[in-house]
Design a protein around this nucleic acid. Sequence first.
DNA 1: GACAACCTGACC
DNA 2: GGTCAGGTTGTC
Length: 270
Amino acid sequence: MPELPEVETIARDLSSVLLGQKVRKAEFLNSSIMENGGYLSANVLENKRLMAIGRRGKNLLFYFSENLAMVIHLKMTGRLILDKLGPDSDKHLHFHIQFENHRLYFYDVRKFGRIGIFEKQALKNHPRLSKLGPEPFAIDASEFARIIKNRNKAVKLILLDQQVVAGIGNIYADESLFDAGIRPDARPPRISVKRLKRLHKSVVKVLKKAISRRGSSVDDYLDGFGKSGQFQKLIKVYGRHGEDCPKCGTLLKRIVLGGRSSHYCPKCQH
DNA sequence: GACAACCTGACC
DNA sequence: GGTCAGGTTGTC
């Protein structure tokens, strides 16, 4: 479910209340959401202090004292919510941490989300993290165009590839391509460098605006306090096939690329 | 590349 | 009954 703006919002929400607090208790209620491969059990976090919370792509990173780290990926329907139980029923609660003054709950209806706890130095060997491409904000338009230009597949699929650029998902790929006026199935070798640079500008603009609106609550997403985001009100094409293009009035189309729905305006995007 | 798998729920 | 869903990974 959550993409970069949603994960960033959650990281900031949790930071604002949890930093510096000591863990009283941490436990998995459902071990199927533990990441595979040599990770530590939750009780190693007990009596450790939360030092920082970060984000890399769509991954949340928690850093504890004594060189312990926790990586959480929310996948499609994972939620991290402070204090109040719900709105999911308890059967979807799979993990929780009790801090000195707050509790953090992990819910996931579909159980795709994963939590891994390990020594900090193991981060650099993490099978997913270690392969992530750069953050979209960390590169300039020229670098972005250079990374994209010679890849001969649909530009939408390249935006979704976490090893090329980290953090973009289905909503923000479609919204960025609409903003840049590029069809999702266009292939970069046939797109001018100028337009690829423009795409970077659109990606940054869309992601920053979505962060400022605390993410998109299209379906399941809730922030760290259990509240909806607001960016779904500003979505122009994602999920709107059959509606009129907000720019030109043409009927928006839906095509499937890499098994993912892609929404665009056949007139504004080429 | 396309497709299935991992899961559950919403909607038609 | 079938289709679809913000993600990622593995297999023909």
